[in-house]
């Protein structure tokens, strides 16, 4: 069983084809659409979570690529909203990598994105909801 979040890019000439339907029908791939949009040049992009059996999954990838769809790995990023952060420090014992850390003795909290492994544990642990997960495709959109 594979479960993966990917970015699909559809060139303008294929954007209207029912790929998600075909994925489900032909390959038993469940696609959970997290974000979708079509730009003014009529190119589409979609962030989806795909889940399927291993063989079905690779068949689906071949199918998409042979039809001109570009499949990119999804980069997810954690964003610390400094303005919303109340500097309480509740997150620091939840974060496994010290990406969220307290400077002592000042007791100020900071976020170091290089250390973040995007485990998402801090998202709901922050009482002020000052941490968000954002999906970034290759262009950083």
């Amino acid at each position: 069983m594979i479960r993966q979040k990917v970015v699909l890019r559809f060139p303008a000439d294929v954007v209207e084809q029912p790929f998600i339907y075909t994925l489900a029908k032909k390959f038993n791939v469940t696609a959970n659409i997290l974000k979708a949009n079509i730009n003014p040049r009529k190119e589409g992009s979609m962030v989806v979570e795909l889940s399927a059996e291993d063989e079905d999954y690779s068949g689906a990838m071949d199918y998409l690529q042979s039809h001109g769809v570009i499949v990119l790995p999804l980069a997810q990023q954690i964003v610390w909203l400094e303005d919303r952060c109340t500097q309480c420090g509740a997150c620091v014992v939840i974060c496994p990598t010290n990406a969220l850390w307290v400077k002592r003795p000042e007791m100020t909290v900071s976020f170091c994105s290089e250390k973040c492994v995007v485990c998402e544990r801090c998202l709901k642990a922050c009482p002020a909801r000052a941490i968000e997960a954002r999906y970034l495709d290759e262009e950083g959109e």
Binding site: T86, Q87, C88, G89, V93, E106, M107, P127
Partner: peptide, 11 residues
């Protein structure tokens, strides 16, 4: 045991 605060000392 690691400690954490719920009250913000900087604020």
């Amino acid at each position: 045991v690691p400690t954490a605060s719920l009250s913000s000392y900087p604020r």
